[in-house]
């Protein structure tokens, strides 16, 4: 390779890294800013805004955010919101996977006369997101007396068949011979599901769980409507209140608010980062 060609290659590599570094900074700087603001006193923030200085207020703010009650009724501490977020994230993911797997198993592995009808009834739900029927959904939940309950928060979000669709695709790709062999060996449908299909689906279940957990945890509009009791707030729902409280305050508590925003962000981010390969596989495969 000639010298000028090598120089060109080197220059293009510098440009590539430069673009990627700029992109990474664009992604990460806003969160660094939130974090910096939690380390300096609120009285300083309202004068200087975010700076490069690192102060010593983080512990205080963390304590205030997690353990001291905030809000108008004074009933939601960071800890109680964290609990609600976990219940929503995990409850949603588990519920969706469980219901989706069972339904997909029934559709793929059984000879049912109304299988086609069930299929269409279920998959029509993929066409319309919750947002377009948000008010009537609220009325239904109200009518069922499920406002400010975990059931009311979680179950209506499950009424979309993304997981069912995903598992149906996956089950269809499982070799036919497996079920034949299982039948010859005398395994019934329940045994086949538990002993053969479940272990085969492990990676898929993990991938689905990550995607669904993040989706459930990050819900905003639905929890905003369904939960009016402050002790039912999730962290993401609490952001709305944070913004409103900050607006009205003389010395807005940015330190505490930013800790709460960070706590709302960190668990799903950790899940996505640590289980990256499962997550990426699940995301890119589920939409094919």
């Amino acid at each position: 390779m000639s010298l000028s060609k090598m120089r060109k290659l080197k220059l293009s590599m510098i440009v590539d890294h430069g673009v990627l570094i700029l992109g990474s900074l664009f992604m990460i700087l806003p969160l660094v800013m939130l974090l910096q603001m939690t380390t300096i006193p609120d009285t300083e923030i309202i004068k200087t805004g975010p700076t490069l200085k690192i102060g010593d207020q983080f512990d205080d703010n963390l304590y205030k955010a997690m353990f001291e009650a905030s809000g108008f009724a004074g009933e939601n501490s960071g800890l109680s919101m964290l609990k609600n977020s976990l219940i929503l994230g995990i409850g949603f993911a588990v519920g969706k996977i469980l219901i989706g797997m069972l339904a997909a198993y029934a559709i793929v592995y059984f000879r049912l006369r109304f299988a086609t009808l069930a299929f269409w009834l279920i998959f029509t739900t993929l066409l319309l997101p919750l947002e377009v029927r948000i008010l009537p959904s609220y009325e239904v939940v109200q009518w069922l007396g499920m406002l400010n309950t975990y059931q009311g928060l979680i179950i209506p979000l499950i009424a979309s068949a993304t997981a069912t669709f995903f598992f149906r695709q996956f089950f269809r790709s499982v070799p036919e011979e497996l079920v034949e062999a299982a039948r010859i060996d005398g395994a019934g449908p329940v045994k086949f599901f538990i002993d053969i299909l479940m272990p085969l689906s492990k990676t898929m279940i993990a991938a689905m769980f990550i995607i669904m957990f993040v989706y459930g945890w990050n819900q905003y509009l639905w929890p905003t409507m369904i939960t009016t009791d402050e002790d039912m707030y999730t962290l993401v729902r609490g952001i709305k209140q944070i913004v409103q409280v900050l607006e009205g305050a003389v010395v807005p508590e940015y330190g505490r608010s930013n800790v709460l925003a960070l706590v709302a962000v960190i668990p799903p981010v950790l899940v996505v980062v640590f289980f990256q390969s499962w997550f990426v596989k699940g995301l890119t495969e589920s939409d094919k």
Binding site: I99, G100, L102, A103, Y105, A106, I107, V108, Y109, F110, R111, L112, A115, A118, L121, I122, T125, S137, V140, L144, I155, P156, I158, A159, S160, A161, T164, R172, E176, V179, E180, R183, G188, P189, V190, F192
Partner: peptide, 26 residues
């Protein structure tokens, strides 16, 4: 549907029921 599917009738109905009830109501 798999060619070599199971032929039980009540079990698949039972498996589909939670999904169908939730989407019917919500």
């Amino acid at each position: 549907m798999k060619r070599a599917g199971f032929t039980t009738v009540s079990l698949p109905v039972f498996l589909l029921l939670p999904q169908l009830v939730i989407i019917a109501v919500f």
